[in-house]
């Protein structure tokens, strides 16, 4: 289904962007992991969010989410894998499905993990970020799932259900992928498995993996004062644009990005 704006990420930056897109009369879809998987959920107390001292991270997230729902934002659970532009639309893939919009706000938080040795080298050659996409190619074969969320466990169950033999690594600190022309073996925290494919399932993909060609600076998405990225129609807000990694900063940037995205959509409509 077509939307005016797709927001990737359901934390403070994404929810603030969604509220502000709705305030400008545009439709918005927020794609995110379950609220409980947001890193803020585990914060015992947030004391520097103006006007609401002493709230727990979970309370704050639920309050922000309720506000965005009230404003008329739509929600969809899932992990965004890729985005690609065609003419004046952005297509965004979510698991086995896709959605499209005129503009995108990237608010997926910090992709915390660095790439593992062998990961980039074997991506597409026995390393995959999407079990629902590539799983079927490995039916009846041994695979490994390196999982960093509860959703990853569900994807591992899916792989088992279609006939893969799954070795599951739960939140390992270090992994290395080894092979020849293709990945053949993965070693995580000293434990090895010989596999045909390694599914690396982190909570969020790195912005450069989601948006090929997006400019980054010191590992963060490069934005201007309007929160515009180097790609037309793509805006970014929150932790993915750099520190301080704080709720107030994320909400403020979300507001700017949401308004900029709504303006971008309005300008496009005017040009037609």
């Amino acid at each position: 289904m077509a939307h005016d704006v797709i927001v990737i990420g359901g934390g403070p930056a994404g929810l603030s962007a969604a509220v502000n897109v709705r305030a400008r009369g545009r439709s918005v879809l927020v794609v995110s992991n379950p609220l409980e998987e947001n890193p803020l959920w585990r914060a015992e107390k947030v004391d520097n969010y103006l006007g609401l001292p002493g709230m727990s991270g979970a309370e704050l997230l639920k309050t922000l989410r309720a506000h965005a729902e009230q404003a008329g934002a739509e929600f969809r659970e899932g992990r965004v894998l890729n985005a690609v532009a065609m003419e004046t639309d952005w297509f965004v893939s979510i698991g086995s499905d896709m959605e499209n919009a005129k503009a995108v706000v990237l608010a997926g938080g910090v992709a915390r993990a660095k790439k593992f040795p062998g990961e980039a080298e074997y991506l597409g050659k026995g390393v995959s970020y999407c079990a629902t996409c590539d799983g079927m190619l490995y039916r009846k074969k041994p695979v490994a799932v390196v999982g960093y969320s509860d959703s990853a466990k569900k994807e591992a169950e899916f792989l088992t259900s279609i006939g893969c033999t799954v070795t599951y690594f739960d939140r390992p600190k270090t992994c290395e992928i080894i092979g020849g022309a293709k990945a053949e073996r993965v070693v995580c925290d000293g434990q090895a498995a010989d596999v045909a494919c390694v599914f690396l399932l982190r909570p969020a993909l790195a912005p450069t993996d989601m948006f090929p060609g997006i400019e980054v600076e010191n590992g963060y998405v490069k934005v201007d004062r309007a929160m515009a990225t180097s790609l037309p129609g793509v805006f970014a807000a929150g932790d993915c644009t750099g520190g301080p990694l704080q709720v107030s900063k994320a909400a403020g940037e979300g507001l700017v990005a949401g308004q900029s995205a709504a303006k971008y959509v309005a300008d496009l409509a005017r040009k037609k």
Binding site: L81, N82, V84, M86, F91, V92, S93, I94, G95, S96, D97, M98, C130, T132, C133, D134, M136
Partner: peptide, 17 residues
């Protein structure tokens, strides 16, 4: 491609064009 793959569906319109 395959029908169960979101990224493939995304490439669909581009390939058709």
């Amino acid at each position: 491609w395959a029908t169960w793959c979101g990224p493939c569906k995304m490439m669909g319109p581009i390939v058709e064009k």
